[in-house]
Design a protein around this nucleic acid. Structure first.
Length: 594
RNA sequence: GCAUUCGUAGCUCAAUUGGAUAGAGCACCUGACUACGGAUCAGGAGGUUUGGGGUUCGAAUCCCUACGAGUGCACCA
């Protein structure tokens, strides 16, 4: 039973019977805590059409509902707000429905597919905090879309070629002495990152020396021997020079091994990985096509452009005068390629907001080219992650490394367990403990990054991110463990959960909990519509918090009335399952014990 | 300069998309049957939603404006 839908249609009937008018779409909102009731109907919008005072309308509809709807048990009117209370019997029916539906919250298949592209790292350095926000968002949005009934394809485009990786390659060639990750005792991505930093140091030094000898800085930056060598290396790579290519392979392989370990550690995977070294030449045919269609135009020097000034955008280059492609050309090509590979109904990119303009232009071009998919593209843009000390800058060494961060949060969880778990983990093996602490540490981190609106720039406070109290991942994980403990005790006491609860009187907080549970599918939908994991983070917290209040207020196992005992156990079980599902959509696992 | 995003408690974030007395957590105070798991719960204090104007029954939310912050405006990716 869907109480909300029934209420809506009941209100529509009320309006048409009482006033002989159509109310149109009825929208309900949760009642504020200080008032009685769980659903609120706002009557202000009806005042004009019905020519009555808001409170009068509320009274009339309220009376009608109590008289004509079985699910409505009472109401009160405050100004123009009609607060509606629902009968216990209806809540129990809802709870029985939820308890009997294993796929509660999984919405019906849409018969449509969506591609989510995220992560998309460069291969010259390890993943850092900013990447984590990206990965967590992309992974979570993929799960949310799947729960919304889409077939989801997760992709990653690895930027494995270009000047940046040549910098690491050159530094390795000059200073590396054939060092391997094993010898260095480092993950491959960290080792390659080390040489990237070394390059930058050596390069800066060269530039400084040249400036000291009187050369303007800009000129020195271009003419520094190291930079010239990097560019030569890139040319050699493009020509397929065997030595260069083999060095490139070696370093990239190390990086991939390192990335794989990180991805596995954070629980992220992809259905398909594209490599830019394979796709960077794509898009030139599209430029031809655009010229023929008159979407693009060629300048005298041979470069190709599109004029988007009528859309408030600029003129944009799509092909250089020497015939080589730019970023935009490649993205046109890969977008087409991805569509040819999977024919997804929608494509989503999880990319930082510094590329907002790029995606505006990309989508505009694809629309003008008449691509059939062009109206179903979406850039999930997210803000940067700042440190309390300011902005992260990789060259200044102020980045927070992803692997280090996960290790720190895991250690924090382990330390907290020492004084909090108090013997509950005694039967755990060392490996089980390690995996639990990883689950908790990662849960803290993911929750911390996902609970805020993606669009907003956010601040990362290391101390807060490992906090396990209050509005945090571990708080919610704790509630799940707590519920499992209760259910275990029930089993030990031979209390069977027969699932179907008979009518009984519910406490206010129990109603509140069933109400929250019943909201879950709608939250899943909203999170999918808005690509907003934060909705589910908040939902999980709200559910966990309300459960704790319930737990504190009412006995469960100590309850003597068998019907109430049964009701509370089923309620607890459903809350545990829903917490697990909601957290699962954030990519966060929940423990049986902690 | 142009474009764009943002500005909410001391700090980090919410606010069901225009609804009621703007809510949580952290930090700070005060309390809770020797815990059905205290990684908890109850309470206190903390706000002119950056300032100013407008729209309307009603604005943190929409419009205008000033101020402040971020990002983008490469024949880089």
């Amino acid at each position: 039973m869907d109480i909300q839908e029934e209420l809506k249609s009941a209100i529509q009937r009320a309006v048409s019977e009482l006033y002989q008018q159509e109310s149109g779409e009825v929208s309900l909102q949760p009642t504020k805590k200080e008032f009685d009731g769980l659903y609120t109907f706002v009557t202000f919008p009806l005042t004009k059409a019905l020519r009555q005072a808001p409170a009068q309308i509320g009274q009339a509809i309220g009376n009608w509902l109590v008289a004509n709807s079985e699910i409505v048990s009472g109401f009160n009117v405050v100004q123009g707000f009609l607060n509606i209370s629902i009968a216990d019997a209806a809540w129990i029916e809802v709870l029985n429905d939820i308890a009997g539906n294993p796929s509660f919250g999984q919405l019906a298949s849409k018969g449509k597919s969506v591609m989510v592209e995220f992560s998309s790292p460069n291969t010259n350095k390890p993943l850092h905090l900013g990447h984590l926000r990206n990965n967590f968002l992309g992974d979570s949005v993929s799960r949310i879309l799947a729960a919304n009934g889409y077939d989801v394809v997760k992709t990653c485009i690895v930027n494995d070629r270009g000047v940046h990786i040549c910098k690491s390659m050159l530094a390795y060639k000059l200073f590396g002495n054939d060092e391997t990750p094993e010898q260095a005792g480092m993950k491959g991505d960290h080792l390659v990152g080390k040489y990237y930093v070394l390059f930058d140091k050596a390069y800066k030094q060269q530039v400084e020396e040249m400036v000291g000898q009187g050369m303007p800085k800009e000129e020195a930056e271009k003419k520094a021997p190291l930079m010239l060598e990097v560019q030569q290396m890139l040319r050699l790579w493009e020509q397929g020079d065997p030595e260069t290519v083999s060095l490139w392979r070696k370093l990239n392989d190390w990086v991939y091994t390192g990335f794989d370990a990180t991805y596995q550690s954070i629980g992220v995977s992809f259905d398909k990985t594209y490599y830019e070294s394979n796709t960077y030449v794509l898009g030139k045919e599209i430029v031809e096509e655009g010229l023929q269609k008159g979407v693009f135009y060629r300048k005298d020097d041979g470069s190709v452009w599109i004029d988007l000034t009528d859309q408030g955008l600029d003129q944009k280059l799509v092909l250089r005068s020497d015939g080589t492609s730019v970023y935009m050309t490649q993205d046109l090509g890969t977008t087409d390629l991805k569509y040819q590979d999977f024919h997804n109904d929608r494509q989503i990119w999880v990319v930082g907001n510094e590329q907002d303009y790029h995606f505006n232009v990309l989508f505009a071009i694809l629309r003008r080219l008449g691509r059939p998919y062009a109206n179903n593209l979406y850039h999930l843009s997210y803000g940067m992650v700042d440190l309390p000390t300011g902005k992260m800058k990789s060259r200044e060494g102020t980045v927070v490394d992803a692997d280090d961060l996960i290790q720190e949060t895991t250690e924090a969880a382990a330390m907290a367990a020492d004084d909090a778990a108090k013997g509950k983990l005694d039967e755990f093996t060392a490996a089980e403990k390690a995996s639990l602490f990883h689950m908790l540490g990662l849960g803290a981190l993911k929750y911390y990054l996902l609970k805020v609106d993606p669009q907003k720039r956010m601040q990362f406070n290391p101390a807060e991110s490992v906090d396990l109290h209050g509005n945090t991942g571990p708080y919610i994980q704790y509630v799940h463990a707590r519920i499992q403990s209760i259910l275990r005790k029930a089993t030990e006491a031979d209390i069977a959960l027969n699932g179907n609860i008979s009518d009984t009187q519910l406490d206010e907080i129990e109603q509140q909990l069933v109400f929250l549970l019943s909201q879950y599918p709608q939250r899943v939908k909203e999170a999918g519509d808005d690509f907003a994991p934060s909705y589910l983070a908040q939902y999980a917290y709200e559910l966990a918090k309300t459960f704790n209040q319930f737990y504190d207020k009412l006995p469960i196992l100590k309850e003597t009335d068998p019907v109430k005992l049964q009701t509370r156990l089923v309620l607890a079980k459903c809350i545990g399952e829903t917490i697990q599902k909601a957290m699962g959509l954030l990519g966060i696992e929940v423990p049986q014990k902690m």
